[in-house]
Design a protein around this nucleic acid. Sequence first.
DNA 1: TAGCCTTTGAAGTCT
DNA 2: AGACTTCAAAGGCTA
Length: 119
Amino acid sequence: MGPPQHPLVASMLLLCSQKKEAIPGEPNVYVKKPPNAFMIFLKEQRRLVAPELKASGSKATTAYLGTMWKSLPSSEKEKYYKESEKQRLLHKEQNPDWSPKDNYGKKIRRTRKRKRGES
DNA sequence: TAGCCTTTGAAGTCT
DNA sequence: AGACTTCAAAGGCTA
């Protein structure tokens, strides 16, 4: 749909990736993971949902949009998959040496999520 | 005030 | 190889 590789998009993506604070003891620029299809859908739709839904908070909005996502026809989902793929490729072009493992385990959490029943 | 919580998906680590 | 974990977004809530 939109212009595939607009220079402004590239600048914005780079700028956004630099907004996140640097990790202490790490190089100054924190390069974020590129968003997946649902994350793009989530960001686009969050501002479009009704204000009364926004008033419910991000958690409720996210859960609601998760339901919306599952209801989306694959023809509509496809554009988000294409967009995420595009952004992944652009991200790789702009950060050739970056890998998702650069960020892996960097967040300090109080409790780690466990999908299988925690012992 | 940093992290949780909520969602899907990509990609990492572990068994 | 398959199971499990982390992080992308956002913002009210929590410790």
